[in-house]
Simulated assay, not measured.
Amino acid sequence: MGFEQKVTSLHLDILKEIGNIGAGHAATALSTLLDKKIDMKVPQVRVVAFDEMMEMAGGPDNVVVSVFLRIEGEAPGSMFFVLPLSQGSRFIQQMTGDMEFSFEQPPYSDIGLSAMQELGNILSGSYLSSLSDFTNLNLYPSVPALSVDMVGAIISFGLLEVSQTSDTAIVIDTALKDDETTESESVKGHFFLLPDPESFNTIFKSLGVES
């Protein structure tokens, strides 16, 4: 039985709460950085099989912008923040004021790339500190790596880094907007958290939920 079939609604409620607290921390940090109010929501958290995760990002051949990092510490794993090109471009435009910036038209400006890296830093750091606070586990991120590539290539590379395959991912949907944009214009992306196989049990056990 795959791990995703063992996950209960209680597991998901806990993960969503962790996601919402992480989103709150990230919104505060981004509001300070951009000097305007940023609102972040986590509409849904799911635990899915690997193939389904790929499909949620548009399929293995879909080109996206991604920030990847390794989680080190007591529950190691991999984390990806994935945005469609149009959503990534919109966020960089909001962040830098450069309305010409587009991930669909390389080469990319250094300021646009560093803004995307900073977004990845803030979001991943916020989610990771929330997970660490909830679980009392010692977790810390590696330096994030930014890439614009096909989903399959990005995730395969991330997993090759640790010479292992994972067949289950925690997916945290993320919606990000400021006061000037409507709900439909909010930037929507996915967080894919791929704990190493033994880390699933470590995380849920530390939450008081046996897997």
Results as ranks from 00 to 15, higher is better:
52 E>H: 09
52 E>I: 03
52 E>C: 05
52 E>T: 08
53 M>Y: 10
54 M>V: 13
55 E>M: 13
55 E>W: 12
56 M>G: 02
57 A>S: 13
57 A>W: 06
57 A>N: 09
58 G>M: 02
58 G>P: 00
58 G>K: 05
59 G>I: 01
59 G>W: 04
59 G>K: 02
59 G>N: 05
60 P>T: 07
60 P>A: 08
61 D>R: 12
61 D>F: 09
61 D>Y: 11
62 N>W: 10
62 N>D: 14
63 V>D: 12
63 V>A: 10
63 V>F: 11
64 V>S: 09
66 S>V: 02
66 S>F: 01
66 S>W: 01
67 V>K: 02
67 V>T: 05
68 F>W: 11
69 L>C: 07
69 L>S: 10
69 L>E: 06
70 R>D: 12
70 R>H: 13
70 R>V: 11
71 I>E: 10
71 I>F: 12
71 I>T: 14
72 E>Q: 07
72 E>R: 04
73 G>C: 03
73 G>D: 05
74 E>H: 07
74 E>W: 04
75 A>C: 06
75 A>T: 03
76 P>A: 10
76 P>E: 11
77 G>S: 03
77 G>K: 05
77 G>R: 01
78 S>Y: 08
78 S>Q: 13
78 S>W: 06
79 M>E: 00
79 M>Y: 00
80 F>Y: 15
81 F>W: 07
82 V>F: 03
82 V>P: 02
82 V>C: 04
83 L>I: 06
83 L>S: 02
84 P>Y: 01
84 P>H: 05
85 L>P: 00
85 L>Q: 00
86 S>T: 14
89 S>W: 07
89 S>G: 10
90 R>Y: 10
90 R>Q: 11
90 R>M: 11
90 R>K: 15
90 R>C: 07
91 F>T: 01
92 I>W: 04
92 I>M: 08
92 I>A: 06
94 Q>W: 12
94 Q>M: 15
94 Q>L: 15
94 Q>R: 09
94 Q>G: 10
95 M>C: 14
95 M>Y: 14
95 M>P: 07
95 M>E: 09
96 T>Y: 02
96 T>P: 01
97 G>T: 03
98 D>F: 00
98 D>M: 00
99 M>E: 14
99 M>Q: 11
99 M>N: 10
100 E>M: 15
102 S>Q: 06
102 S>Y: 05
102 S>E: 05
102 S>T: 07
103 F>T: 06
103 F>Y: 11
104 E>Q: 15
105 Q>P: 12
105 Q>N: 15
105 Q>T: 15
106 P>K: 03
